[in-house]
Design a protein around this nucleic acid. Sequence first.
RNA 1: UCUCUAGUAGCUCAGUCGGUUAGAGCGGCGGACUGUUAAUCCGUAGGUCGUAGGUUCAAGUCCUACCUGGAGAGCCA
Length: 478
Amino acid sequence: MKRIKIKELLKSGKAGESVVAKGWVRTKRGSKNVFFIALNDGSTINNLQVVVDVNNFEDALLREINTGAALSVSGKLVESAGSGQNIELVADQVELLGAADPEKYPIQPKKHSMEFLRENAHLRFRTNTFSAVFRIRHAMAFAIHKYFNEKGFNYLHTPIITASDAEGAGQMFRVTTLDAKNPPLTEDGAVDFSQDFFGKPTNLTVSGQLEGELGALALGEIYTFGPTFRAENSNTTRHLAEFWMIEPEMAFYDLKDNMDLAEEFLKYLIKYALENCMDDLQFLAKRLQEEEKDKPQDQRSMDLIEKLNFVLNNDFIRLTYTEAIDILKNSPYYKKKKFQFPVEWGIDLQSEHERYLVEKHFKCPVILTNYPKDIKAFYMKQNDDGKTVGAMDVLFPQIGEIIGGSQREENLEKLETRMREMHIPVEEMDWYLDTRRFGSVVHSGFGLGFERFILFVTGMGNIRDVIPFARTPKNAEF
RNA sequence: UCUCUAGUAGCUCAGUCGGUUAGAGCGGCGGACUGUUAAUCCGUAGGUCGUAGGUUCAAGUCCUACCUGGAGAGCCA
């Protein structure tokens, strides 16, 4: 008999059918004559209830049916006598595929702390919460490719190892095969990277954008979706040393086109989650609600599914940096001196300012545009005012900056001048500048932090819990 | 990196002003129970109190350093 996945059994299994199900024991409840096993195979958040007549099975076998053990069960589907499920499997045969010693198996049928499960990241997939999160993560990765494919974008594989460090997005991880203890030295005592694997210093990528622009100015629209590395000593709930980023780059798109794309893209993904991951979302929503019970009324956040629908059904607020500064300066928060950091035109907005705009003032996702040029990267489009650049940041409640992007400066001279001002090694970037020398056009792009987006969709609180194996300062387990 | 905070049983935690033999629930194990829903009930085992120093007649409790976790900030996606 062929194994049928539990998702399928629960959806279209009929009473009377003989089936085989395989999975892992979530809980076992017993009495003198009958056992109930909650069996889960990862295909769905929901368990299959297996009913075992104790008298038909060896005691030794029944003893091995513990939380975490893997079973193959064949039997007949019946309408459930108990409430809580429509259908259940009455076991004719139970085969123990893999035992799990109950004295040693760490995952118990009880609530565990996120910290404990993080330390047991190799087993946390077996919990309801994490199986839901990682099914949703998969669905979102798939939907990203689906969206761009439908829009005619090309998936461009930009390099993981790069010799360029001009993007300035953060500290980089050095990639080398040199002996760390005895590296070859040049005459003046510096490490001689000409003898390294690539013949020059190389690092893990912090962004595929610059290479992405090369693709966009030939293929029209491209996107990247791959791992990105930042060696920043950041210890927060929204930073990882290794994370996944989606970076679309589009020829002939100006800043408004760029914003339109970002908004449509995010809404497409949210819609996909609501249409395809409802079971998991409902589980996570319920979990969140229980967590929120302890909080005072005014600190509780919106129900997860309500929140997703809200973002889906409302236009993002678009305003310029200058307008945002005005709002902040006229806010009751500012007047009561509740902001810790100063608010002045020219400063970079602090978390508290972004949160005020998104969570208190607009209560809606916000797209901020046209930042002062001095706080943004060299490649951004210089506006006619001489003070600002065509940047855009999408800010989400709780998470903050989820997307950072801009229209790119397409004018060679302006770009070169700005690079010199910011001490970017122009000579090493010749390959990049060729895009502006030959057939340069208006173009734009942005970067979406995949894990930050997953945080938003799942309602999870810590970015380490939405990536299978988190890489953070002092932690590279598994 | 900075600020705050925590580390006690497998897990989640309590442990009062420094005082005698270290506490609970869950989980495990043994048993009971005719259909359970993280079942219930009875019993039982389980501890180098993060590590190293120090103060004290006496330290889980106070002090210092370090390690690790968490929250927030900075940096950013």
